[in-house]
Design a protein around this nucleic acid. Structure first.
Length: 194
DNA sequence: AACACGATCTACT
DNA sequence: GTAGATCGTGTTG
């Protein structure tokens, strides 16, 4: 009989993030994003992610080297990287790889678990919607997920037959547009576009 | 100083 | 399917 924790699992340790970005992306599926913010505790199950690498990934913000905005992507693993796009949305990433090596996983979709009373069930289906529902902005970039009010908790892994790998969304004409670095849980209502 | 554009979303034809 | 919203960022002059 496998234990089934009723409450939150333990925070993922730094070592979880200090690995290859695609591996971290795969294992983030099913884990629980938690933010203890002004509105209280909010928690959601991660069901859609995308991996963004560094120098070998033209679609990545880190492709042309660090800038003030993208500095967290080059920093230590296990921190947040939040950026602002299209003049109205924010997107939350989890920094991967070792300190000095760029890599991040974009959180694109989640299923609300707690603290989202009054929200639509699909309020977290999409990266801009997810960050907005959690109340995250660029002020929350470079937070340490191992120590701060923002964290990711352990939970049961999503079995491979339930995981879909596809090309990433929203990219233009990059060379890596065809890489299958978007992963999501098959059939989940928290996925932005199945 | 000026410009082009973006890891999005919603509304509408 | 396409258009528009709306502004920080990086680049160019």
């Amino acid at each position: 009989m496998v234990s089934r924790p009723k409450g939150l699992g333990r925070r993922l340790p730094r070592s979880f993030y200090a690995r290859k970005t695609v591996s971290v992306a795969r294992e983030l599926l099913g884990k629980v994003l938690v933010y203890d913010g002004p509105a209280g505790r909010r928690a959601a199950r991660i069901v859609e992610v995308e991996a963004y690498l560094g120098a070998r990934d033209p679609a990545s913000h880190a492709y042309r080297g660090p800038t003030p905005r993208t500095a967290p992507m080059f920093g230590p693993p296990g921190r947040s990287y939040v950026y602002f796009v299209y003049g109205m949305y924010h997107c939350l990433n989890v920094v991967t790889e070792s300190d000095g090596v760029a890599g991040a996983v974009l959180l694109r979709g989640a299923e609300p678990l707690a603290g989202f009373e009054g929200f639509s069930p699909r309020a977290l289906a999409g990266p801009g919607k997810l960050a907005r529902a959690f109340g995250l902005t660029t002020k929350h970039t470079n937070l340490d997920l191992v120590r701060s009010a923002l964290s990711i908790r352990n939970a049961r892994p999503v079995p491979s037959p339930r995981v879909v790998r596809s090309v990433r969304v929203g990219l233009n004409d990059h060379a890596t547009t065809n890489k299958p670095w978007r992963l999501y849980v098959r059939g989940s209502f928290g996925v932005s576009r199945p």
